[in-house]
Nucleic acid binder design. Structure first.
Lengths: 249, 249
DNA sequence: CGGGATCTTGAGCAGGTTCAAATGCTGTGG
DNA sequence: CCACAGCATTTGAACCTGCTCAAGATCCCG
């Protein structure tokens, strides 16, 4: 057994307890509003959107299966999971969403949600009503293009997850998972090696298609091998290269 | 052991050896061209598309990873599989596509393909160049809407597959797989209970995240239980209700 | 400070994989 | 038209990864 590690010290809060007022720069909506050629965002759209904020408490639903699709959501700060259900109640988590990411776009062209989204902690979201989005997309080709782009990206992400679920073993799965968060935090200018996972081991296991206990065991083994340290949901990655090697693309 | 069953007699060829000339009605492109309110298809678009036909022989690639995205494809007759790859060469089949279905739309907004598509038998496809699609989508809101709809549907299908890969056991997987084909053939007016699977056991196993041998064993067991009969790639479903029960949504 | 939730660890089990080999199609060339 | 090569499918048997069940440790929140 390894000796107990000291609890990781104060951490740059990647989720942030307080939402900064209107810096929408790091919000997924910004990308949606941006001109294709890297120009400025459409400010009217940004304004409309930023006004429409809502606060959700841990465990609350953004939307549920069967509900009519009324809006898409951008996470200003906090996090959420989305998932689908079998008709006998089993759940498959299909994605986690952190500060700055969009969700609900997959259902865009459906009348009713086929998946659900639930907030993992106290979370501030911008809600963009479908009418608003449609109006702007009608008017602005760049918004249309961004929407396609985002849907396309969601399909690519899903393909990666299918590859993971169908072909990877437990070690590869967890390594892939950790590196994905590392990259996403880095993209938003948070630390790529020291972060807070807001979801439970059980949610991680569900997402990765393995039992909660297996997630724990792999975490422990990774820790013994010097790949990372954990303290509850706090993770510090120590050897990104070796993790990449393990994850096998 | 069960006694050997007589080979399933002549079967309504669901793939069809000969492509009928220009009945584009049952082609995925038709849906793309159709007005939202159930009106008529845009005939200019249909014409443009139908002219652009290509024949592929078993095993040939429609597109490969890394290649620039130039077109989307509609299968006029035949079938294809699409799949993604790990960087160490493992493959995950992400979908099968039969007569009348579209493929390549997931990559729409990417510069380069992140997946590959390979034809499973001699297959006739209509190739729709991106410029054409873009031009029409620019002009016709209904085409835009249909494109979103199709992408959306792909995301929903992928979610179903993730649920299957993450949470279902071997029996549930194969039952789900068979029912999916049953429905898709029915939608195209082929028999929902007697059809030809154009892919190998190995491809099925890959798609469902299980070994080729396990696919065989489950087929055998289903046959012993009177759920279906098989003769090579010919399948006859005998008890749809029980299959549905097994598949567990 | 107490109780419920979450996380961790252990032990035994099982579904599905792997390896190996037999059987049976299919289509190709003589 | 037949034989043969090569591939796909099927079946058997041993094995192994990850699961289940159970219990203890730790944390967090009121």
């Amino acid at each position: 057994m390894m000796p107990k590690r000291p609890v990781v010290a104060r951490v740059a809060e990647n989720a942030g307890e307080v939402c900064s007022p209107i810096t929408c720069r790091d919000c997924g909506i910004y990308g949606l509003c941006r001109e294709v050629n890297g120009g400025e965002a459409d400010l009217r759209l940004l304004e409309t959107i930023v006004r429409n904020r809502k606060l959700f408490k841990r465990g609350e639903l953004l939307y549920r299966v069967g509900e009519p699709v009324r809006a898409i959501y951008a996470i200003r700060c906090g996090s959420a999971k989305s998932y689908v259900l079998t008709n006998d109640g089993r759940m498959q988590v299909t994605g986690f969403h952190v500060t700055g990411e969009l969700l609900g776009l997959g259902a865009l062209a459906s009348d009713h949600y086929t998946s659900e989204a639930r907030v993992l902690e106290t979370t501030m979201v911008c809600e963009v009503p479908l009418e608003v989005l449609e109006a702007y997309s009608e008017e602005l080709p760049s918004v249309r293009y961004q929407m396609l782009k985002i849907l396309s990206q969601e399909i690519i992400d899903n393909q990666d997850l299918m590859l993971l679920l169908g072909k990877k073993n437990a070690d590869e799965r967890l390594a892939t998972f950790l590196l994905s968060f590392s990259q996403r935090f880095q993209k938003r200018s948070y630390s790529p090696t020291l972060f807070n996972l807001s979801m439970s081991r059980s949610d991680i296991g569900n997402y990765l298609g393995m039992a909660e206990e297996t997630v724990c065991r792999v975490f422990t083994r990774f820790q013994e091998d010097g790949l990372l340290t954990t303290a509850r949901r706090q993770v510090q990655l120590l050897d990104l290269d070796r993790l990449r090697l393990i994850s096998r693309g």
